[in-house]
Amino acid sequence: MSYELLREQCEAYLLGGLEGEELQHLQSRIDNNDPECLEALREATELVAQLGHAAPLAEPPALLRSRILNAARAEKRTSALPVSNWAAYTGWAVAAALLIATLVNRNGLTAIRQELAEARGEVSRLTLKSDQYRKVASILMARDAQVIRLTATAPEAPQFRAYWSKESGLVLAGSNVSAPASGRTMQLWVVPKTGKPVSAGLFAPDSTGQVILIAENVFANPGDAAALAISDEPMGGSPQPTTTPAWVGKLGD
């Protein structure tokens, strides 16, 4: 077979047109890394891919970029978590500790038990964090996720951002957020188009000022909501807002 014919077969192969013996023969050469065939396939790929430019030009939705990048970042962070290693390590640690426990005195056993309890606590925290990342990733990757920016009523205050998917839930994120006063907490509200605000959860920033709040099933349909709001409330939260919301974000803005 001439090189030109081989290249034509590769083009037909890439277009999905090749069938039967021709397909089997070419596939076999590709699988065997036949150098001539791979070169023909490379050339054919460059040509066939150019056909993509024949598609009418269309603009991707503006939110698609951030959804893709946020999903990639979330995936990177989730995969970096050593949860499974921790779990495996803990299994061995428990077995080793039980073995050691039979060989040590009562005081030593108490100390080992305490260390085991701490190790289990650490595993639980890591597992919780991993689950949280996975949940956030699923919301960000949801096709119907919409972004709601919550703007502060006070100047210089940080902005919150919420991502809301009917299928996957609601996540609120913020950074550089100041801690509420002693005995107080921050409360997220879903403000429906009609009716009273519904609590979507209590939160406070961590030691670095970061906030992440995952709220699931807060509302059957985001389309029924008019806005999200955050207010300062007494510790334990309130059934309805007792202060003027410090942040508000309208849906659809």
């Binding site: 430019h53 598609a55 030009l57 269309a58 603009e59 991707p60 698609l64 970029r65 893709i68 990048l69």
Partner: peptide, 21 residues
Amino acid sequence: DRALGALYDASSRLVYSVVLR
């Protein structure tokens, strides 16, 4: 992930056009 963003900026219209078609 910045490289992914740059690749997206360079390629997304072509990719989206092909896929939508």
